[in-house]
Simulated scan of single mutants.
Amino acid sequence: MVIYLKRSGFSWILHAFSTLSFALSKPTNEENISLQLDNLLHGYDRRLRPGFGEEPVVIKTDILVRSMGPVNERSMDYSMDCYFRQLWVDKRLALNVSTQNISLNIKVLDRLWYPDTVFLNGGRSFVHMIPMPNKFFRINKDGTVFYSQRSV
């Protein structure tokens, strides 16, 4: 790009360019969070639970039942539509950000440790997928992780 300048407007245009370059080089809050997440996950090993070698991880769970039925008395089966939610602390994910929490794409779970929860004596179950997987994933700035999924 070639710019022709007159002497009278030279300092104004240089000031405009320096302001523009500063604005372009200053990272936004989203870029800072993305950069921090990348830095956090750089040495993160998803195969190790949080606090490995220390106290066990406390995982708080809760189930919100949306609907239940029908119940088959003969086979003792029933169906249930519910939200299964889990909460735990992974201090490796603590962020130095101004926002209280960050909601992330569920694909981030492929890079993080999360509990392998099993329901004993469960028949069949599946994660609700219409129109897309009903999953929600959030990290608080102190490393508290909230994971929710709709199951049927």
Rank of each mutant, 00 (worst) to 15 (best):
R49A: 13
V97L: 09
Q86H: 10
F52P: 00
L48T: 02
T19C: 05
M129L: 15
F84A: 08
Y147N: 04
A23W: 04
R138E: 12
I102V: 14
I106K: 06
F126Q: 02
G51A: 05
D62G: 10
I3K: 02
Q100G: 02
T19W: 04
Q149E: 04
Y78C: 12
K141T: 07
F126T: 01
H42A: 15
F126E: 02
F52A: 11
R47A: 13
L109K: 07
L48W: 09
E54A: 10
I102G: 00
Y4P: 05
I13C: 03
F22E: 11
F119E: 02
G123Y: 04
I102H: 03
K6P: 05
V152T: 07
S103G: 07
L40Q: 07
K107Y: 11
V97M: 08
S8P: 07
I130N: 15
G51P: 02
L104K: 01
Y78I: 11
Q86D: 04
R47C: 10
S18L: 13
F119H: 10
K60C: 04
L5N: 00
F22I: 07
V58R: 08
W113Y: 08
Y4A: 15
G51T: 02
N134R: 12
R74E: 12
V127G: 02
F136P: 00
G43E: 14
K141D: 06
Y147D: 03
N96P: 01
I102F: 01
I130V: 14
R138W: 05
T144L: 11
D110R: 14
N121F: 13
Y147C: 01
D110H: 15
F136M: 07
N105I: 14
S148Y: 02
I13H: 00
I63K: 06
P131H: 09
I3C: 05
K141S: 11
K26Q: 08
R138T: 11
N140W: 14
M129N: 13
E30F: 11
G53I: 05
R85I: 12
L48I: 05
L104F: 10
Q36S: 05
A94G: 08
I3Q: 01
T144F: 10
D77S: 12
V127P: 00
N29S: 14
A94Q: 04
